Simulated assay, not measured.
Amino acid sequence: MTRRAATPDRTGQGRKLAVVVVGLAVVVVAMLCAFALPSVHNGPHDIPVGVTGSRDATAALAKALSGEEWDVTTYDDAKAVKAAVENRDVMGGVVLSPGRITAYTATAGGAQSTAALTSMVTALAKQQQADVTVTDLRPFTSDDPRGAGFSSAALPMIFGGMIPALLLSRLFPGHAGLRLRLAGGIAFAVVAGFAVAALLQYGTGSLSGTYWITSLGLSLGMGALALTLLGLESLLGVAGYGLGAAVIMLLGNPLSGLSSGPHWLPNGWATLGQLLPPGASGSLLRANAFFAGTGAGGPALTLGCWVLFGLVLILLADRRGTRKAAADEPAAQAQLV
């Protein structure tokens, strides 16, 4: 009796199954790395702090804070320290004077970093038996003092890019619907950005910036996500969309630093998070909503690059579709003849 050889279909299905199993395993491991590793190693990392006072006092404090948790810069006087906090050059400032320690913080710049700085200053004042005063120069709003509404904006911004890209790809498929998908993605980003900003600023009272500037920033963030995913789907199909969505959810979301601020993540992870659309969107929202646009240039440029990347992908997909249609037209005419 002869043994029947495996059919090509079964061999192909076996390979496909192996690829799916390995791919899912890689996704699970990537998810674990993205969520677990930053959490295990989170905490203060090179939090910039401004210090002023007598030479001996500032030298002693700088020596005490010489670990990886703090990055100390010395300023000439208290006015310079306060300006550095307001301009986001440092996360907080410490003014040392005989019998008193004054701390300037910016809770809206990073609540956990502010808490760490406040705890450090309180311990230092207790050690030196000095009075301590903590002034929050950039707090969250009085309606939302813990910044819960601001922190909750991460997922709406992410899904505001993912869901329209998915729906538009299904409703207007193929090369014929490409331009409709592009127009729909841009329109949705603008409308959703203004709607989310209105809810956070006037509904929950969580934001305090100029409404239309904050809205445009949110629209830019959602547009960066939507156009990138639309471009990946148009050029690479479902696999492209899945890859982009996985990167956004598995890396962009946990590394965005929206609730904690980037200085609470390990340095490499924090840098990566700020280069991805969710992290850049969160930083842009923070700058516009609480710091009058100070520090908005970097994240806005990052999001602009992602928008350009998405547009390039869509342009490539459009040209490929045009060439394919031109190549198919003579064959269709020949069949009619």
Results as ranks from 00 to 15, higher is better:
93 G>K: 10
93 G>A: 09
96 L>I: 09
96 L>S: 06
97 S>L: 10
97 S>H: 03
98 P>Q: 11
99 G>L: 10
99 G>V: 04
100 R>W: 08
101 I>E: 10
101 I>A: 03
103 A>P: 00
104 Y>L: 10
104 Y>V: 05
105 T>A: 11
106 A>H: 06
107 T>S: 15
107 T>D: 11
108 A>W: 03
109 G>W: 02
110 G>T: 00
110 G>P: 05
110 G>V: 05
111 A>P: 02
114 T>Y: 00
116 A>G: 00
117 L>A: 01
117 L>H: 00
117 L>G: 01
118 T>G: 06
119 S>L: 07
121 V>G: 11
123 A>I: 04
125 A>I: 08
125 A>T: 04
126 K>E: 15
127 Q>N: 10
128 Q>S: 15
129 Q>T: 13
129 Q>I: 11
130 A>K: 11
131 D>Y: 04
131 D>W: 05
132 V>N: 10
132 V>Y: 03
132 V>S: 14
136 D>M: 08
137 L>R: 10
138 R>A: 15
140 F>S: 04
141 T>C: 13
143 D>L: 13
146 R>L: 13
147 G>H: 12
147 G>Y: 14
148 A>Y: 12
148 A>R: 06
153 A>C: 06
153 A>G: 11
154 A>P: 01
154 A>N: 13
155 L>Y: 12
155 L>N: 01
157 M>T: 12
157 M>Y: 01
157 M>W: 04
159 F>D: 04
159 F>G: 06
160 G>V: 08
161 G>A: 05
161 G>T: 03
162 M>Y: 00
163 I>L: 13
163 I>Q: 06
165 A>D: 03
166 L>R: 09
168 L>M: 10
170 R>V: 12
170 R>N: 08
171 L>Y: 10
172 F>K: 03
173 P>C: 09
173 P>V: 09
176 A>P: 02
177 G>L: 05
178 L>V: 10
180 L>G: 08
180 L>T: 14
181 R>A: 03
181 R>M: 05
182 L>A: 13
182 L>G: 01
183 A>T: 05
184 G>S: 00
189 A>Y: 02
190 V>C: 02
192 A>D: 13
192 A>G: 00
193 G>C: 07
197 A>E: 07
197 A>F: 05
197 A>G: 06
199 L>C: 02
200 L>H: 09
201 Q>S: 11
201 Q>C: 07
201 Q>P: 07
204 T>G: 05
207 L>P: 11
212 W>M: 04
212 W>A: 12
213 I>K: 13
215 S>M: 12
216 L>I: 15
217 G>F: 08
218 L>A: 13
218 L>Q: 14
219 S>L: 04
220 L>K: 02
220 L>W: 05
220 L>E: 07
221 G>L: 12
